[in-house]
Amino acid sequence: MSLHDDAVLVLKGYEGQEELRQTYLDHLAAHPDGMWKSCHAGHITASALVIDPGHGRVLLTLHRKLGMWLQLGGHCEPEDAALEAAALREATEESGIEGLTLLPGGPVRLDRHPIPAPCHWHLDVQYAVQAPPGAVQQISDESLDLRWFGYDEVAGVADDSVVRLLEATRARL
């Protein structure tokens, strides 16, 4: 199965955000290359909120290009076997933490946001991953900073999309 086919199946099975979910499905139906950065009409991305429920905190990255505190994630790669694998790969690469595990139940949220030209949209499929006990992060080249924030601190540093992702993730715990 291709990553494109996997994304369609994941989105068809996703419950909630019906209008946005349909926007994603319509995009993939219209763009066979809709998974890839090269699709200038927009493309699917995969991200993951790294959580440490035992300490009531999340790991956020100060994004190098955007200068904002965000969850970890990014573009799908040809070697990604599934959308959740792309999210897990991105979270592992950007956090430096081995042994992250996906929260069951598939994506937590969808978030569509504009990006600078030449592309137009990121259609982000957002997952949550749990850090193993004693996890120590290591900053990557994609981040200006990487830091743990208590659940109650997130709204003070991150935008509404991250806050909504945290709320949806906490509802799953």
Rank of each mutant, 00 (worst) to 15 (best):
A30Y: 11
V10H: 04
L25K: 04
L20C: 06
K37I: 08
G16D: 12
L9Y: 02
D26H: 10
D33P: 01
A30R: 11
L11T: 02
K12E: 15
M35C: 15
L28W: 14
D33E: 15
L11S: 02
G16C: 07
L20G: 02
Q17R: 03
K37Q: 13
E15D: 06
S38G: 14
L9A: 12
A30C: 09
A7P: 00
E18A: 13
M35A: 12
T23I: 07
V10Y: 05
Q17A: 13
L28D: 10
S38H: 11
H27L: 09
A7E: 03
D26A: 14
L25T: 05
G13H: 08
P32Q: 15
S38L: 11
Q17L: 08
A30I: 03
Q22A: 14
E18W: 05
K37S: 13
V8Y: 11
Y14N: 01
L11D: 05
E18Y: 05
R21I: 07
H27D: 08
A29S: 13
G16L: 08
C39L: 01
P32G: 14
G13W: 08
K37L: 15
D6G: 05
G16W: 12
W36M: 05
G16S: 10
A29W: 05
W36Q: 06
E15R: 11
P32C: 14
E19F: 02
L9I: 01
W36P: 00
E18F: 07
Y14W: 05
V10G: 01
Y24M: 09
L25V: 03
Q22L: 13
E18R: 03
A29T: 08
G34F: 12
K37Y: 15
L28Q: 11
L9G: 08
L9Q: 08
L9W: 03
E19A: 15
L28A: 14
D6W: 09
Q22G: 08
G16I: 08
S38F: 12
D6Q: 02
K12F: 03
C39I: 00
Q22H: 06
W36H: 06
A7Y: 06
G13P: 00
G34W: 12
T23C: 10
Y24W: 10
C39F: 00
L11I: 02
W36L: 02
V8C: 06
